[in-house]
Amino acid sequence: MKTPLKWVGSKARIMSQLLQHLPSGKRLVEPFAGSCAVMMNTDYDEYLIADVNPDLIHLYQCIKFDADQFILDAKRYFELSNDECSYYQIRSGFNIEPEWQWRAAMFLYLNRHGYGGVCRYNQRGHFNVPFGHYKKPYFPEAEIRAFAQKAQRATFICASFEETLKMVRPGDVIYCDPPYIPQNPTANFTQYHTDGFTQDDQAHLSHMLHLLCQQGYPVLASNSDTYEARNLYAQFTRYTLTAPRSIGAAKGGDSSARELLAVGV
């Protein structure tokens, strides 16, 4: 199932590979919400979905609370002219808009009209993704309605991975899809909200997941297939997945990337 948002690194296109390793359980815990492709393509009784990006979490909360109203609000922006000037006016308005209802609608507009599904902020916390120059951006009404239905099983919270992982309880399955370790210096084009996701964050995450494994929780973590990632997850069972990529591939070049899936039980 597709999701309302375009998203760099979305797991929608590798779900068939990922599902082979996701165990059964009562609740799926995801400290890095992303596009919620894993939630939409699994069938757990409950979901705990977290992210440090309040725009992302409030969008999901708005859809869950009242999908019809969210669709009406978001359509108002999609019905405006699809041109560069309109995009940058809405982006400027989004960066000063205090009302979460309108920020959520504008966030969907920016996601669908901005470049490549990138979600990036500058150090002042301003969304700064450039215009995408798409001929006719798609309004994902069917995906919003499907999401709203599935979201009734979910709790969405704005929290760090550390805070979220402290909330796990017996019966939970944990899946982490953090910002990836760059495979090369030019690959690090995303900003994880305003502060970035550092090497120390990567190490702290892997350490917490290892401790949860020792406590008996089933844990999965995705990352780029690099030496650093394999070293961080050396005590996990590691698999290589092949993921399509739409950004960073040269025309006529390799359009897929190797990803690491670390599994601990």
Rank of each mutant, 00 (worst) to 15 (best):
N82R: 11
K135A: 15
A37V: 00
A105L: 04
F131R: 07
A37S: 09
N128R: 10
V29P: 01
W100V: 03
T42P: 01
I90S: 08
F107W: 06
P130F: 13
N95F: 13
S35T: 08
W100H: 00
W7V: 06
L22K: 00
E97Y: 09
H58Y: 15
Y87D: 01
F65M: 04
I71D: 11
G117N: 05
I96K: 14
Y44T: 03
L110E: 12
G117L: 04
H21D: 01
V29E: 00
L28N: 02
L108A: 14
A104M: 08
C119H: 10
L48Y: 01
D55W: 12
P137H: 11
S86P: 05
L72N: 10
G34R: 05
M40Q: 12
W7Q: 05
G117W: 04
S92H: 15
L80H: 14
C62T: 13
Y109C: 02
N53M: 10
H126K: 11
L110H: 13
N41P: 08
D45Q: 12
N41I: 11
I144C: 09
R103H: 06
G9K: 09
A74E: 01
R120S: 12
N111V: 07
Q20C: 06
C36W: 05
Q17E: 04
V129T: 07
L19H: 03
L72Q: 14
R13T: 03
N122L: 13
Q69Y: 05
Y77I: 02
C85Q: 15
L19C: 03
S86T: 15
G25C: 04
Q61A: 10
Y121G: 06
Y134E: 02
G116D: 08
P137A: 14
Y87H: 08
G125M: 13
Q101E: 10
Q89R: 15
E143I: 10
R124C: 08
L5V: 12
I63S: 06
D45V: 07
W7T: 07
D51Y: 08
E79T: 14
F70I: 09
D55M: 00
I57L: 12
M39N: 00
G116Y: 08
R120A: 13
F78S: 11
V118F: 08
K11V: 01
G132K: 11
D68A: 15
L48S: 04
G114S: 12
K135P: 04
V8N: 03
I57P: 07
G25K: 06
L80N: 10
R112H: 11
A142Y: 10
R103K: 13
L56I: 04
K75E: 13
F32R: 06
A104G: 07
A33T: 02
P140A: 00
E46F: 06
W100P: 02
P23V: 12
C85H: 14
R27H: 01
W102S: 09
L28S: 05
I14W: 01
R76N: 14
M40N: 06
W102I: 02
S81P: 06
L108H: 11
I71K: 09
Q101V: 04
D73T: 03
D45C: 03
Y115S: 08
D66L: 10
S81L: 14
Q89D: 15
K75L: 13
Q89G: 05
A12M: 00
M15Y: 04
I144H: 07
